[in-house]
Design a binder for these strands. Sequence first.
DNA 1: GCTACCGCTGCGAAATCCGCAAACTTGGGC
DNA 2: GCCCAAGTTTGCGGATTTCGCAGCGGTAGC
Lengths: 172, 172
Amino acid sequence: MQSEAVASRSADQRDSPREPRNGTPHLDAVSLAIIQQLQEDGRRPYAAIGKAVGLSEAAVRQRVQKLLDQGVMQIVAVTDPLTVGFRRQAMVGVNVEGDLDPVAEALTGMSEVEYVVMTAGSFDILAEIVCEDDDHLLDVINKRIRALPGVRSTESFVYLKLKKQTYMWGTR
Amino acid sequence: MQSEAVASRSADQRDSPREPRNGTPHLDAVSLAIIQQLQEDGRRPYAAIGKAVGLSEAAVRQRVQKLLDQGVMQIVAVTDPLTVGFRRQAMVGVNVEGDLDPVAEALTGMSEVEYVVMTAGSFDILAEIVCEDDDHLLDVINKRIRALPGVRSTESFVYLKLKKQTYMWGTR
DNA sequence: GCTACCGCTGCGAAATCCGCAAACTTGGGC
DNA sequence: GCCCAAGTTTGCGGATTTCGCAGCGGTAGC
């Protein structure tokens, strides 16, 4: 669970007819509004959310539970890693020879890798790395990522200062 | 609040002697363990957290409240934007002429910009953009970001597939 | 019309959250 | 060594929230 993308949590509902395998599980305006409420405060009581979106407490509770089960959203604590003792972060752009998937999977399996996305542009994959110090960062990039079969080249961007980090899409 | 980095929320405690302006507000092992619990489930009851970390319910509650007030952590719902109707995302690398700060501030102020970080490497700033469609994305990059004074050049990486997104640092 | 399914509501019981006062710990100052 | 002050933790009672469940209404299929 912890090494999986947010959009694919529960395996049991995977091939249910309601989820068309590639598309959106159809979120109506009310569910969006619920998500928006929880993006402002993940611990807001169901009754308060219900009042805001025009639904009863029990209905909100059921919809939230379904959103969590479907993996559409997670309710979690987020921190600035620099504050929590991880002193080196970097974005790594990766160029791959051949199929991207094995490389992306390998990156996904590394605990220091926080974020993996396949992209169009001069990098094939972008990966965000969170490390404790320079040695650790060097080890991950130089010894583990660049050693992966299929990796043609990498380019690193060491983080100097995090300026913004929000989870507010839908709020505009 | 929504356009501010996670590490600088409450203004009232800003220049308290305990926070040395640039450093970590000293998180001990117990607070780390609490954060870790809430990274697994942001709605976990205080009593359960207390049992896990060896503290009373009330003590956990106070520490969580302090962590939130200090801006060390946030408890929020996170989603895969693609699931919630934002169909185009991109990472934009920016090169700046002169001072980075004004550009970073301008980016921070844009609601479509989700994430801003200053970096060392061939980009000065990395910014993640969340948009509804291609037109919207083009507008943000071409008309708004590239028009900022000081921006020398940009390079875009359109997201094709999000493979991993976790908030589990500390869990290893 | 009937049935099965799905989501919403209302409600009572159980669990959780919250505020507060007392006890405990820590770190000086003298 | 003693004592004070500040910061934490604990325990507890009351308010609030969560939880499970039965009932109701709408909809699709037959």
